[in-house]
Write a protein that binds this DNA or RNA. Structure first.
Length: 259
DNA sequence: GTAGCTAACGCCCCGACGGT
DNA sequence: ACCGTCGGGGCGTTAGCTAC
């Protein structure tokens, strides 16, 4: 089994004309501009590396924030290879009996999938096994529940020598690898990555109608008897009227309910 | 039977935080 | 700047329990 520790750098839209909405493509808000990867064998020995710049096609100007953060210039990006070629190289790089993708936070896997989908390329082999090293490092370094540690802090706390800049895909993949080696234990097991499908929300509620049979079933269950036709229509009406809140009476806040 | 209380659960919003 | 995730808190629903 091989571990593929990788990191990505993204570019994104920016509203250069202030006051206007940024020009983000909802199908791909983060475009991959660099990938750095390190391949490890079972014994955590490096058996391959990959460091590639990708020429952007969606956002052809650098977001100033990204430029500042990564230090990448448009000149360098223009010398990069296409996403399709990079993905082909990456696919060959990870090819093995069993490869586990190792990432700092789940975002990189998610955005990789989204970029692949955007370019309508063949998805990664399924099931995609991955390890979120950030999550394990946060636990190992006693972070508060719900708090994820940053890569720089994790490296510092684990005494990883800092010799090159963060926010470079290859350097970050290197630091992630070093952190992984330091925190690894036998409890760390790969997960299967399943792309999330957007769930229901309040805005999409208009696309739904009342499930009358289930509503009636619920009343029949609670009252342990069958509802008549009249009762069914009263239940339906009450359900609809209830949602309008038109018979709500404001409660005096001074009168507190007994505990 | 009715009313009140409460635990468990699900859903949603919001803020903190981390990613580029 | 912008996006995504997570947990806490608020709120509503359901169901079980208790007291009357």
């Amino acid at each position: 089994m091989n571990y593929i520790v990788f990191d990505l750098e993204f570019n994104q839209g920016y509203n250069f004309a202030k006051g206007t909405k940024s020009l983000n493509n909802p199908k791909c808000p983060f475009e991959i501009i660099q990938i750095g990867a390190i391949k490890l064998n079972d014994h955590f020995e490096t058996i391959g590396t990959l460091d590639v710049i990708v020429k952007p096609e969606i956002y052809t100007t650098l977001n100033p924030f990204v430029r500042e953060l990564t230090g990448i210039t448009m000149e360098e990006l223009n010398k990069g290879i296409s996403f399709e070629k990079m993905y082909e190289d990456f696919s060959n790089f990870i090819k093995s009996d069993r490869s586990v993708l190792c990432v700092w936070g789940i975002a990189d896997i998610k955005e990789l999938f989204r970029n692949i989908e955007f370019y309508e390329l063949e998805p990664l082999p399924s099931p995609t096994e991955y390890i979120d090293i950030q999550s394990y490092a946060s636990t190992a370094l006693d972070c508060k529940k719900g708090i994820n540690i940053g890569l720089g802090n994790a490296a510092k706390l684990l005494s990883v020598p800092i010799e090159s800049q963060f926010h470079d895909a290859f350097n970050d993949a290197f630091y992630t690898t070093e952190v992984f080696k330091k925190i690894y234990n036998k409890e760390i097991k790969p997960n299967i990555y399943i792309p999330k499908v957007k769930g229901l929300n309040r805005l999409s509620a208009r696309n739904y109608k009342i499930d009358l049979p289930s509503l009636t079933d619920q009343f029949e269950k609670m009252f342990k008897r069958e509802m008549s036709i009249d009762e069914k229509s009263i239940i339906k009406l009450a359900y609809i009227m209830g949602k309008t809140n038109q018979f709500q009476i404001k409660i005096d806040p001074e009168i507190k309910p007994k505990k």
